[in-house]
Design a protein around this nucleic acid. Sequence first.
DNA 1: TTTATAATTGAACAGTGTATAATTATGCTT
DNA 2: AAGCATAATTATACACTGTTCAATTATAAA
Lengths: 196, 196
Amino acid sequence: MGRRSDHSREELRALFIAQGHALMAEKGLAAFSGREVAKRAGYSVGTIYNVFGSLDQLIAAINSHTFLIWAEFLRQRLESAGEDRIRALVEGYFEFALENPRIWSAIYDHRLAEGEVLGEIEHSHRVELTAIVETEVRAVLPGGGGPETPRFARSLIATVHGHCSYLVSGSFALLEESDPVGSALDRVRECLAAQR
Amino acid sequence: MGRRSDHSREELRALFIAQGHALMAEKGLAAFSGREVAKRAGYSVGTIYNVFGSLDQLIAAINSHTFLIWAEFLRQRLESAGEDRIRALVEGYFEFALENPRIWSAIYDHRLAEGEVLGEIEHSHRVELTAIVETEVRAVLPGGGGPETPRFARSLIATVHGHCSYLVSGSFALLEESDPVGSALDRVRECLAAQR
DNA sequence: TTTATAATTGAACAGTGTATAATTATGCTT
DNA sequence: AAGCATAATTATACACTGTTCAATTATAAA
């Protein structure tokens, strides 16, 4: 048809991301289909290319959206947390991944083709999570940390991520690991204690 | 045709895994194609299903083969290592991943469908790497470690893996992290120092 | 030499992402 | 208000994908 008034460009973006997110949660990245997303949104495939340029960019947008939800999830966990906010963060990281394994895995399984870049807003969504962690890390470091704290916080995230990644991908199951959350928390504690 | 004498069943397996490995190194998991592997091996698609049962099982076999190469790579690094064997392991982990990003990523990006299981030999290939690390961790722990050492060693691997995963997937690039290897090594050192 | 068996193929099927020509609804101009 | 230019949307086409399966063919056993 032609330009429709029922959805603006931004509404279309949001619609495709929402439907795509739902499909990703159901099927995972390997069985993700642009045609199926379009069908659910009530549009044809071509519209995805009109709005996002490529399927890769739609998936990138879906994944950036996941970061948004994830950050909100962690903020809520922190609100209802007691004194041990570091534990809340670590457990929150795992909890989100385990509750949304396909959505979470898609973030790390998908890679943009060379040359393709992330938009500014998408980038900011992804960095937000780091900021949350950095704040909490600063709070438990003597003197509120130093200039190296951002790097240190990123490194702690990577540490937890490694444990979580092994858990979700099944590597830990092969190694008969029973308590990866506990291990991750132990490592984080040890590294935090070493900063002084 | 019929049963051919030019390749035994095991030779066929090895042939497909070798050609598949090469294709994976070139294209990565997302652009991997069973038909292309078959073509390179000089057989038709159907033979893959005759030998492996499904494409997923071929990919699993390719990934298990990667573990074999990876373990050998680490053993060589350890041979030419000086006193700091832990550093050699951490740097070796990263080096292999960075030299073979597509092959390495395929290990973690691919997940077997529910119900499908890994064969015994394949499983042993994957566990071998853990054993290498465990030995080296024991060597630097006071009293050669204890009953918790296997778990601790796996946790250290996960820690390094997290940093490496962020590096290869591009997450660290987004966060403008410059020295993930150094960070990983720092964390490992801190955790090792805490065990006493 | 014949027969039975197992390996291999090639075609079919229902999907996929991407490109593009054709169509259609809208906003602007006259 | 009518017509036109523009941009959105669709439908179709293309070359691919994984998977299944009947037909074919080479081998081992009888």
